[in-house]
């Protein structure tokens, strides 16, 4: 690794983002160390998803800096002057960051196996044989060893989301981003996806998870970050933030969540 031991894998300082004059992120600081699982909680519109998308440059930030594994995301710092990176250089930065979307976004015209194999072959130019073997192993790991020839449209939402996780893992990422991975699922399918994510966390993967699943955050997260109105309101171990929130906004949100569930 390029950065010294102890340096965080994700180091975000004063991240700001606005859409058409509407400030969505108002200076977010966040450090995520290697092997940590961090859950981002908060009401909708609080900026959690936007922050996640800024990490892998799906959104460009207006202020602050984000480093992933020592690399400044989206810019080259030449003697204090920032130069925007080319699309190609940004694509290269994204290779090591896996992302799982709320609406799966599997490629519907490709089979499950082709979905998983696409990026390692096209982006990393790895040999097909090797990639296929690894893809089958990953599919077995997410419990879909019997579906490589199926098209995404033939799978349930939970199965599709597990394929999406396998697809992201096929690139051997250092960091996995989850954007509300269970919000679009029928309630009875949420469990299978959360189980897959738990297993992934157990392997020591660094994960940032935007979620409304309090049980998952409580059991799996090393740290939860509560966001509201574009700022971090409260953060700490789940035992503190979820069980004994200090901030009034956190308290209100958590009460609503538990009433709803």
């Amino acid at each position: 690794m390029a950065n010294p031991a102890g340096a965080p894998l994700v180091h975000a300082v004063n991240v700001m983002k606005s859409f058409h004059g509407n400030d969505v992120l108002k200076g977010i600081d966040m450090d995520v160390h290697k092997g940590q699982v961090v859950c981002l909680l908060g009401p909708s519109g609080s900026g959690k998803t936007t922050f996640l998308r800024c990490i892998n440059q799906l959104e460009t930030i207006d202020g602050g800096r984000i480093w992933v594994d020592g690399d400044l995301m989206g810019y080259a710092d030449k003697g204090g002057v920032l130069h925007r990176l080319s699309d190609k250089a940004i694509a290269a930065q994204r290779r090591d960051i896996g992302m799982v979307f709320q609406r799966f976004n599997l490629f519907p015209h490709k089979t499950v196996l082709e979905n998983v194999m696409e990026a390692p072959i096209q982006v990393k130019r790895e040999p097909k044989k090797e990639v296929e073997q690894r893809a089958m192993e990953l599919l077995a790991k997410v419990g879909l060893a019997d579906k490589p020839a199926a098209y995404p449209g033939q799978l349930s939402g939970g199965q599709q989301q597990r394929v999406a996780i396998a697809r992201a893992l096929a690139m051997r990422p250092k960091l996995m981003l989850f954007d509300e991975p269970t919000s679009a699922l029928d309630p009875e399918l949420v469990g299978e996806v959360l189980t897959t994510m738990r297993e992934l966390a157990d392997t020591g993967m660094t994960m940032i998870v935007v979620t409304h699943e309090m049980g998952f955050a409580r059991d799996v997260a090393d740290r939860v970050v509560f966001m509201d109105g574009g700022v971090v309101v409260e953060e700490g171990p789940p035992s503190e933030v979820i069980s004994n929130p200090q901030n009034i906004r956190t308290k209100t949100f958590l009460r609503r969540m538990t009433e709803g569930g």
């Binding site: 892998n56 799906l58 699309d87 190609k88 694509a91 290269a92 994204r94 290779r95 960051i97 896996g98 992302m99 979307f101 976004n105 599997l106 490629f107 696409e118 990026a119 096209q122 982006v123 999406a164 697809r167 992201a168 690139m171």
Partner: peptide, 9 residues
């Protein structure tokens, strides 16, 4: 977006 997140050009 999914293709972008996978690092495709």
């Amino acid at each position: 977006e999914a293709a972008r997140a996978l690092g495709m050009s």
